[in-house]
Design a protein around this nucleic acid. Structure first.
Lengths: 335, 335
DNA sequence: ATCGGTTGCTCAATCGATGTAGCAAAGGTA
DNA sequence: TACCTTTGCTACATCGATTGAGCAACCGAT
């Protein structure tokens, strides 16, 4: 209290005329099984309160071979979805009496691995990895250290994983968009529904494209491979790709399925340069959600990934302590 | 490597036929001053690599009375500004060889205090506190534990703090909005510029209101206390407050200064129910930035808080190790 | 008076890494 | 040969909390 130095159980023991072990027991809930007198316990606790004592968690962690830390690795936070994930993660961690330690590791596999190893070195009690670029090596690192772990968003074939049900979500969105459109005609590309954004080889995009393709095929609205414009995730690329499509068609297509919020930004930027009349003829949807996007100047269907449900499922996996692969798909919400 | 258990310097020492101290020295950069043969060092390092050794950071932290952790406490992540802050924090922490541990503590003073105490108990090497509800007690906790700390966004009068230059930003935005409007007339409340959102007693809002008031006064555009509608930060409240104003005036006011992104959401929701013609007669500005909001259907001035600069300044304070109060104001960017 | 059982505590080892102090051997000088 | 210096390492205490083992005092029963 006075000196400003942090006090230890030894200080308190001295002041209470007791032994450090008694202090340790008194401050935990083990004092009963350690047969301390209630009176002694209360005396010790009073002194601890007066001293403003708080345990050195590194010492405790070292001794108990755990840390009370819940580790989370994720690429970045500028993405609304990841932000929501980390928010939920913190909530669930707190609910388990753990202190959330959230690390932004970027998109590079190497940096992610270093972050995971770092968290393992702190003896985190569990580890949640979102958006892993190279999940396998991360899983091996966790395995080796016997750290419970779960992958979110990007799955790992060797570990428990929770992902958005991309295919089902894309199917639903595609169906909804087609419903809102006039029936497309094979001979007129301006009447088609286009898929814009993402990268074919990434699992999430691949699944969404699968859903899009299945549904367009089922609705007899798939005519051409060019309906799928997997131009990447950046807004600039999406803007360019849409501009090119607009130039080629001489107008906007009847429907547009935008893959990811970043792409939507580019799309909106392009659309903001078009006259109102032209936009209102088309139907738009986006796989991702942003509250401000709902307030854009034309109707926009959005697929919201349920970060809350995903983190809930992820913790169910962690609580079960399973290390076996187990892929859980969480449904999306159409807005 | 084989057993799956994490190896320690003792395991490596045994395999290398050396002592634990030699291993410790060999794996750090102290082997030269500890006079180990280069050959021995290389042998030890090779074995460490083979074993996949990584130091137990809790043990190291306990011994060295530091942790290698950079702690950050912030209310939540759903806010774009806080998300950017934490992102930058992670960057700077990494640059200093620290592992960022970011904790969402919510808005309640009590939860924030517990989070701070928890991070202190892990012996974090520095602590950045964003959006503190009750900064003073947090500062005392840090002081007591001799932990370097800095407040961001919400300042603390007893500690180094970095905040947005709210007054200057509000002045600039007010000026810009007034410039874009017709000259207001004292007798006609529909021609006035209104300030919507925030809470008078919170420092950030108070400063912005000050800037708004100074500038409207200077421009002879301040007529009535009712021009300031500090209805809180939630979108619902802002929506209601604007609806009430609209009902009272019989139309939208000529200008609206929206305080914070949350309020903007409510404002946009209300405006989305109005006809296009009515909206285009008014001038809008918002103290906060969101890329999607730039794409709304009418021009909107936004003040962007520079999270990058703020975190940079905050780390400058931390690096200097100062404990004395020191309020730094970071300029905003008008968009 | 002795024994067994309970109560209320203390002792000392432990977790893993660090770092000071110091030992033994080799080399150099007187 | 005795003495000092340098080289290359090891021994051991330390950080603070936890926990198994164990000790002393006391009670009641034989």
């Amino acid at each position: 209290m006075k000196s400003g130095q942090k006090s230890t159980i030894y200080d308190i023991a001295r002041k209470a005329g007791a032994s450090p072990s008694a202090v340790s027991a008194a401050l935990s809930d083990k004092w009963k099984q350690r047969r301390l007198k209630q009176e002694t316990v209360e005396r010790i606790r009073q002194i601890a309160r007066d001293e403003g004592y708080s345990a050195n968690l590194q010492a405790r962690g070292l001794r108990k071979a755990e840390s009370g830390l819940a580790g989370m690795v994720l690429p970045d936070h500028e993405n609304r979805f990841f932000a929501e994930l980390s928010q939920q993660f913190a909530r669930e961690a707190h609910a388990r009496g753990l202190c959330p330690a959230i690390v932004h590791a970027g998109r590079e596999a190497d940096a992610q691995l270093r972050s995971v190893e770092s968290l393992i070195a702190y003896s985190v009690d569990l580890l949640m990895i979102a958006g892993a670029t190279e999940p396998l090596e991360l899983a091996y690192a966790c395995r080796k250290a016997r750290v419970r772990h779960v992958f979110v968003d990007h799955p790992c074939i060797e570990a428990p994983s929770v992902v958005t049900d991309n295919t089902a979500g894309a199917t639903k969105l595609t169906q909804t968009l087609l419903n809102d459109m006039e029936a497309p005609s094979a001979s007129d590309p301006t009447t088609w529904l286009y898929f814009l954004g993402g990268e074919q080889h990434l699992p999430a995009s691949a699944e969404r494209i699968l859903g899009f393709r299945q549904e367009t095929k089922a609705s007899q609205a798939l005519f051409d491979p060019e309906q799928i414009l997997a131009c990447g995730y950046e807004s600039e690329k999406a803007e360019k790709a849409l501009a090119a499509l607009h130039a080629r068609l001489g107008q906007l297509p009847a429907g547009l399925f935008v893959n990811s919020i970043g792409c939507l930004e580019g799309v909106l930027r392009f659309l903001s340069r078009l006259p109102e009349g032209e936009i209102s003829k088309s139907t738009f949807g986006c796989f991702d959600y942003d509250p401000f996007a709902t307030l854009s100047r034309f109707p926009l269907r959005m697929v919201r990934q349920r970060a809350d449900l995903m983190v809930g499922e992820a913790f169910r996996q962690l609580d079960a302590g399973a290390f076996e692969p187990n892929l859980i798909r969480v449904p999306t919400q159409l807005i």
